[in-house]
């Protein structure tokens, strides 16, 4: 489904991503973890063509990502940022509808039906969508951003710390909802997170990145049981959980 072949990126002297080859099957969820600045967002941006790799290429369903195909391919990928990236001058509703309207694929009734469906899916009251992004809470904004990412029913979802800014309760609910959405809609998902629990919850295919390289790929348990390097085991253990009993 999603193939990255030998892609690399450097900024001047700084190598952000060493040549990396990666393939993600349809309907699969992959989680990217790793220390700050290791190149997770860069990788995601290269997949959706916001950054052009210095070498290698990206293919989606066999189509090579080039400047000609990039906009069409983007319609098959939903991209959600940590702060949502909602357009403040448009209502939440218009934020969600913007691409569907632009592409004129659907008429207004169909758009409305789709938005109602997504609102139910993300558990947002539909009336709330008439507000501007400045008038709703951070968690609600995040759900709206996810609705926008899902609007065209893209086969691929790229989520860059979509729940980083949410309180634990909201996050807990949203995680449940998202996981269900991913499974039910058969999405191919790349999710970036800093939270080991979240990583384990969403996938048993986790990529740990370090210094622009994939340090280890596998289930979180493998990272604990058979770490590929000293770094992996230190990174995995560097999480504090409250001792509940």
């Amino acid at each position: 489904m999603l193939e990255l072949e030998n892609i690399s990126k450097r900024y001047g002297d700084l190598t952000v991503l060493e040549p990396t080859t990666l393939s993600i099957a349809k309907g699969q969820t992959v989680v990217l973890i790793g220390p700050s600045g290791c190149g997770k967002s860069t990788l995601l941006r290269m997949i959706i063509g916001l950054i052009t790799p210095d070498s290698g290429h990206v293919k989606l369903d066999g189509t090579l990502l080039t400047s000609e195909t990039v906009n069409t391919l983007r319609h098959s990928m939903g991209y959600v940022l940590q702060d949502g990236g909602l357009f403040p001058h448009l209502s939440a509703y218009d934020n969600v509808a913007i691409m569907a309207r632009h592409l004129e694929r659907w008429n207004n009734n169909e758009i409305h039906a789709r938005i109602e469906q997504l609102a139910a899916l993300t558990k947002l009251p539909i009336e709330l969508l008439s507000r501007f992004p400045g008038q709703i809470s951070g968690g609600q904004r995040q759900r709206v951003a996810i609705m926008r990412g899902l609007m065209l029913d893209p086969p691929v979802l790229l989520l860059d710390e979509p729940m980083g800014a949410l309180d634990p309760l909201v996050r807990y609910d949203l995680q449940e909802d998202l996981k269900e959405i991913f499974r039910n809609l058969q999405k191919t998902v790349v999710l970036v997170t800093h939270d080991m629990g979240e990583a384990a919850f969403f996938a048993n295919d986790v990529l740990l990145m370090a210094h622009g390289k994939i340090a280890q790929r596998g289930a979180i348990e493998d990272f604990l049981d058979s770490p590929a390097s000293d770094f992996v085991s230190r990174f995995i253990r560097a999480q504090r959980f409250p001792k509940l009993n």
Partner: peptide, 13 residues
Amino acid sequence: PSIHESALALGLP
């Protein structure tokens, strides 16, 4: 930047 990026990532010409 995040608005700029979102607009691009939507695939709007």
